[in-house]
Simulated scan of single mutants.
Amino acid sequence: MSTVYAVDVQITAPVNDTEVTDRVADAVTNLFPGAEVEHSHGEIVATAHDMEEFSESLHRQEILDTARGAFFEDLRGDTFSFDLKKQAAFQGVVNFAVGDPSELGDIHVRVRVNDPDAESYIDHVAPPTKDGKPIDPDE
């Protein structure tokens, strides 16, 4: 039986004067295809209720350990957040932003886990690994 997760994902990204709003929206929906995107004064605000496609990208790119580090670094209670590079996202690639924000600004993702808990959801999205491969808890 699979666990049902109840999550709220809020995604924000600045839209600079030199950028096309639709391209910034595309960067968001490339990584979060089910997100509902709204344009608001100089930024994109999107909401989603799952991270399945994002999780698939993490598996495909083999960056589960990097993702787990980013998620746990800013875990506060039932919420965790992380930043992504906008240009990479436009190409459909997950690239976590660390350090100073890029010149164009980063995509900020905030995830609130309503059920069951944040740690379990992180394990679902980016499972622990051994030798770079996800660990199957049933083995």
Rank of each mutant, 00 (worst) to 15 (best):
M1K: 11
S2M: 13
T3S: 12
T3V: 14
V4E: 15
A6C: 09
V7I: 13
V9S: 01
I11V: 10
I11W: 10
T12R: 13
A13T: 11
P14F: 06
N16P: 02
N16G: 14
N16T: 14
D17V: 10
E19N: 09
E19A: 07
V20W: 06
R23D: 13
R23C: 00
R23Q: 15
R23P: 00
V24R: 03
A25F: 06
A27R: 07
A27Y: 07
V28W: 09
N30C: 07
N30I: 01
L31H: 02
F32M: 07
F32A: 01
F32P: 05
G34S: 13
G34Q: 12
A35F: 08
E36K: 15
V37L: 08
V37Q: 05
E38N: 12
H41Q: 12
G42N: 08
E43N: 08
E43I: 00
I44K: 07
V45G: 00
V45Q: 11
A46D: 08
T47C: 00
T47W: 09
T47L: 05
A48M: 04
H49K: 11
D50V: 02
D50K: 04
M51S: 03
M51N: 03
M51L: 15
E53I: 07
E53Q: 13
S55D: 04
S55M: 05
S55E: 06
E56C: 02
E56F: 08
E56A: 11
L58D: 05
L58I: 06
L58Q: 07
R60Y: 10
T66C: 00
A67S: 07
A67E: 02
A70H: 10
F71N: 05
F72L: 14
E73M: 13
E73D: 14
E73Y: 10
D74P: 01
D74Q: 13
D74N: 15
R76L: 06
T79S: 08
T79Y: 01
F80D: 01
F80H: 05
F80A: 00
F80E: 04
F80S: 04
S81G: 13
F82Y: 15
F82C: 05
D83F: 11
L84S: 02
K85C: 12
Q87A: 14
Q87K: 14
A89L: 02
A89Q: 06
F90E: 14
G92P: 03
G92S: 07
G92L: 03
V93L: 11
V93I: 15
V93G: 02
V93D: 13
V93T: 12
V94R: 01
N95S: 15
N95W: 09
G99E: 09
G99S: 04
D100L: 10
P101N: 09
P101K: 08
H108F: 11
V109L: 06
R110D: 02
R110Y: 00
V111N: 01
R112H: 11
N114Y: 08
N114I: 02
N114D: 11
D115I: 04
D115V: 01
D115G: 00
D117S: 11
D117L: 07
A118H: 04
Y121R: 05
A126G: 09
A126Q: 05
P127M: 08
P128K: 14
P128M: 14
D131H: 09
D131E: 14
D131Y: 12
D131V: 02
G132T: 04
K133T: 11
P134V: 06
P134R: 05
P134G: 07
P134T: 09
D136Q: 07
P137G: 04
D138V: 09
